[in-house]
Each structure stands twice: as C-alpha cells, then as structure tokens.
C-alpha cells in the first residue's frame, strides 16, 4: 500500500542517507545541463524521484509536510515564469524570444558568457517546473484521495468478478 506508512528501519535509514546524494546529483545535472548530457528536465525528474522516495519510505504525511500541493503548484508556476521571463527579457532587449546574446549588456558580460548564463537560468526554471509537476502527479495518482471516490456513494452490486484478485 502506498498510502500506509511502511515502518522498516533498514528502508528508512537507507532512504535518509541516500536522499541528499540524489538531490545533489540532480542539482549537478541541472547546473551542467548546457555542456553535458542532462538538463532541466532530467534534473527535475531526479528531484521529483527523491521526493517520491520520501513519499514511499515515510508515508504521504511526511512528504506533504515538506512540500504540499499548493506549494508544488506555486513552484510550478514560478518555474514557468522564470523560463518565460528570461525569454521576454530577451524580447524586450530587442532580440528574438530566448535570444540570450541580448542579455550581455544587461548582465555586463561578454556574449558567449551571456548565452551560458541565460541557458542556465532557463534550465533552472524548467527543473523547478518539472519537479513540482511530477511531484503533484505522483501525489494525485498514488496518494490518499482528498475527494470521495465514486465507489463510496454509489454501491455497485457485488459480482463474482470483485473476488478475483487481491484488490486494494
């Protein structure tokens, strides 16, 4: 059961040790996304996997205490805002959408440096958006439902098919 707290000392201790390393690795993937494999999407997915590991090992309450649904939606919006904001800043500076070379006078650096910094900002925005969107999908699919399921108020007639497998 994903909604029950599965108290196991070995699982919880290993998760507590391994989760910071997963998050550091995800930040490495995001920060080096512009000249090595990886990037915002993969790093964001790895960050969401670290949160899902908290969800699986410590239960839904512990995961929601760290990042609840509203915070996840707000973080997702902030990520999209960072991405679109950098693009619109380039547009306002006189270039095309996401034309990072126009950011060079604003940041006060050379054009190649401005391109590198601009794409780093875009990767950070994409990483934030992907992490919070994945996390809220996982919470919605695997977690306790906050609204009543249709099964609760429509009593279906019990058939022989309901006894086939070890259902939830």
């Amino acid at each position: 059961m994903l909604t029950q707290i599965y108290k196991n000392l070995i699982v919880q201790t290993v998760c507590r040790i391994i989760i910071p390393f997963i998050q550091i690795y995800a930040l490495y993937v995001i920060a080096h996304g512009h000249y090595s494999p990886g990037g915002g999407f993969q790093g964001g997915v790895i960050l969401a996997a670290a949160l899902a590991l908290i969800f699986l090992a410590y239960g839904q309450d512990a995961a929601v205490r760290r990042l609840n649904r509203h915070q996840a939606v707000i973080l997702c919006a902030i990520g999209v805002f960072i991405y679109a904001g950098i693009g619109l800043l380039c547009l306002l500076a006189g270039g095309n959408f996401l034309d990072y070379s126009r950011l060079a006078p604003i940041l006060g650096v050379t054009i190649p440096r401005a391109r590198s910094l601009g794409i780093l900002g875009v990767e950070i925005g994409v990483g934030l958006a992907v992490m919070s969107a994945m996390y809220s999908i996982i919470i919605d699919v695997a977690g306790k439902s906050t609204i009543a399921a249709p099964r609760d108020f429509v009593q279906l007639p019990k058939t022989k098919r309901d006894n086939v497998g070890p259902a939830a």
Binding site: L2, A52, V141, A142, V164, G165, P166, A167, A168
Partner: peptide, 13 residues
C-alpha cells in the same frame, strides 16, 4: 511508481 500506484488503486489481476 505511477503504474504501481494505479495497480494498487485498481486490481492486481
């Protein structure tokens, strides 16, 4: 993880 969640919400067989 998503598929395991779906299996647990529905049926295993």
């Amino acid at each position: 993880i998503l598929f395991v969640g779906a299996v647990i919400k529905t049926t295993r067989r």
